[in-house]
Amino acid sequence: MVSQDNQMTGKIRLYISEDLSEGRNCSLIKGQHHYLRNVMRCQSGEPILVFNGRDGEWLAEISQIDKKVAEIQVRSQTRPQSFTSDIHVLFAPVKKARLNYMVQKATEMGASSLVPVMTQYTQKTRLNYERLKANMVEAAEQCNLLNVPELCEAINFEQALEKLDDATPARSLIFCDESAGPVLTKDSRDALEAIKNKPVAVLIGPEGGFSPAERKKLYARPDTLTISLGPRILRADTALVAALSLCQMTIGDWV
C-alpha cells in the first residue's frame, strides 16, 4: 500500500540494490554510510527515501548510524514502481567529463539501457564502469526517478548491429545522421509515429562521425530510421540530449 502519512517525509533519496518491503532492514554500502554520517550529518531516527528500480520508492528510517555501519528500516511505500520507455542508447564513448554528462542525461531522460559502442573513429576505449554507474545512480537519486538504466559492457560496431538483428521483439534503430538534411522531414516524422510505443535503439556517433563503411552498413539495414537533428553539427553529448528529446516527445513517454 502506498503511504498517505505526511508526518514523516524523507528528503534524502538513495538507490539500494536490496529488495524493499515493509519492515525490512537493510545495510547501506560504504559510500552511502559516509554520505549520511559525514556529509548530511544524519542521526538515528531520521527519515530517508529509498528505491531499487523494482519495488517502487519507500520511506525508511535510519535505525543505526555510527563510525562503522549505517542501517535503515523500510517503513512504507511512497510511490509504486513505474517503468520508462523501452529506449536503448548506443553511444560511442567520448572524453571523461562529457561521457559522465552523457550517462547522466540519458538516465534523466528515461533511457532503459546504455550500450557503449566502439566505432572506427572512437577515441576513448577504456571505460570506468563503476564511475559511469555512480553517475547514473546520482542522476536518478537527484531527479526523483524510480529507474536506473542498465549499463552494458562495451561492444564493437558490428556486434551492436548483430545484437539488433537478433533482438526479440524487434528493435528499430534510430540513426541520428548529420548529413540527413537541415530539418526533420515529414517522412521521418511519419516513420517515428509508426514505431510509437515499440522498442527502439538510438545510435549516437563518435567525435568525427561514422566511417564511410559504417554508414554504408547503417543505410543497408531495413529497420534503420535515419533522422536529422537540425541544421547544426552537434557534439556527441549534445546530440544525445537532442535525440532523446525528439524520441520522448514523438514516440516516448512525453506524449
Rank of each mutant, 00 (worst) to 15 (best):
D165G: 02
D190G: 08
C176Y: 00
A191S: 15
K163M: 05
I174Y: 00
P182W: 02
S172T: 14
S188G: 09
S188M: 13
D166A: 14
T168G: 02
E162Q: 13
S172L: 05
R171I: 10
R171A: 07
P182I: 02
K186D: 15
A180Y: 03
I195F: 08
C176D: 03
R171T: 14
P169T: 12
A160S: 05
A180L: 01
L184D: 07
F175H: 01
K198C: 09
L184R: 10
T185M: 04
E162S: 12
T185N: 07
G181L: 05
A191P: 04
A160N: 02
S172E: 09
S172M: 08
D165Y: 05
A170L: 12
L161V: 10
Q159G: 01
P199L: 07
V183N: 13
E162M: 06
A180F: 00
C176A: 08
A191V: 10
K198V: 02
D165N: 06
K163G: 04
A170I: 11
T185V: 06
A170R: 14
N197Q: 14
A191L: 05
A191F: 00
S179C: 09
E193P: 00
A170N: 07
T185Y: 01
T185P: 02
R189A: 14
A180G: 10
D165T: 15
V183C: 11
E193K: 15
C176E: 00
E162N: 09
D187M: 09
L164Q: 03
A170Q: 13
G181M: 05
A180T: 12
L173E: 00
G181H: 07
I195A: 05
T168A: 05
P169G: 08
D177E: 03
L184P: 13
S179T: 14
E178A: 04
S188W: 03
Q159C: 00
L164A: 02
S188K: 03
L184F: 05
A194M: 10
G181R: 07
D165A: 14
E193A: 15
K198I: 07
I195E: 02
S179H: 09
E178D: 09
K196S: 14
L164N: 01
S172F: 11
D177H: 02
A167P: 01
A167W: 00
A160W: 00
G181C: 07
S188C: 12
E178C: 04
D165K: 15
L184Q: 09
F175P: 04
P169N: 08
P199T: 12
K198H: 13
L164E: 01
C176K: 01
N197I: 03
C176H: 04
A170F: 09
L173I: 03
P199M: 06
S179K: 10
L164T: 00
V183L: 08
K196L: 06
K198D: 10
T185S: 15
L161H: 00
D177V: 03
P199R: 10
P199I: 06
